[in-house]
């Protein structure tokens, strides 16, 4: 469903953030991308979301080449990909409810669907009572749960999570990981970038290890080895 074909990304000449990466992600997979800071995890995810364009090679989403998409097509592909960021990236002027509803609005959903679906995902992430709070009134873990709710509300094919637990304490970290695993069980592909050893070892899912921009290990039921 997602295919990286010999992808390189070079920000400054002489140092490649990603080098000749070839990677296939199948439907329904939960794939963790691990590596030290600067190994290229975030770059990999940015290429998938077309936030950056590859210097060489191509990224395919199904049969679509992400570098060839026009702006309008790109927006529609992005609506099939939910994203969760380490820094949450919620819209500060919108409440938890409105942040989630916004993702549905841009996808062109009808008001009836918004009114019925948003409370459902809020329930799924356990934030029904905080629906009308603004991001600055929520804790880190709560913000990240809003972000996850926003990422999944359009029933995307893929959820990309870039260090989603990087700013959270261990208890909240587990809440978030369990939530991601639950979403994966419902059939959504999860691409998780992290350097949290405990999470990876406990998950027992596919692990891709990056080092200096190259894939050095790709195991079906991987462990965190560096």
């Amino acid at each position: 469903m997602i295919f990286f074909d010999k992808v390189s990304k070079i920000y400054a000449p002489g140092s490649a953030a990603l080098e000749n990466v070839t990677l296939t992600i199948e439907p329904g997979e939960f794939i963790s991308v691990v590596g030290q800071s600067g190994a290229g995890k975030s770059t990999l995810l940015k290429l998938l979301l077309a936030e950056e364009k590859p210097s060489e090679g191509n990224v395919f989403f199904e049969s679509l080449n992400m570098s060839d998409l026009k702006l309008a097509e790109l927006s529609s592909v992005r609506r099939r990909i939910g994203t969760v960021f380490q820094d949450f990236r919620l819209l500060p002027n919108k409440t938890a409810y409105e942040n989630i509803a916004f993702a549905m609005e841009v996808a062109g959903q009808l008001d009836e669907n918004i009114v019925s679906d948003v409370p459902q995902v809020l329930e799924l992430v356990g934030l029904v009572d905080k629906a009308w709070h603004f991001p600055h009134e929520l804790s880190g873990g709560e913000k990240q749960r809003v972000a996850i709710a926003r990422a999944i509300v359009n029933r995307p094919d893929v959820v990309i999570a870039d260090e989603p637990t990087g700013n959270l304490d261990p208890v909240n970290t587990w809440e978030i990981v369990k939530l991601l695993a639950k979403i994966n069980e419902l059939g959504t592909v999860i691409v998780l970038a992290t350097h949290n050893r405990d999470i990876i070892n406990a998950l027992g899912k596919r692990v891709v290890t990056l080092e200096k921009g190259r894939v050095i290990r790709d195991e079906k039921e991987g462990k965190y080895v560096l």
């Binding site: 309008a72 927006s75 992005r78 609506r79 990909i81 994203t83 990236r89 819209l91 993702a103 841009v106």
Partner: peptide, 16 residues
Amino acid sequence: REEIRVMKLVGASNWY
């Protein structure tokens, strides 16, 4: 500016 970026990444079209 961050807000604009987030809106785009969530899949909002340019006009939206």
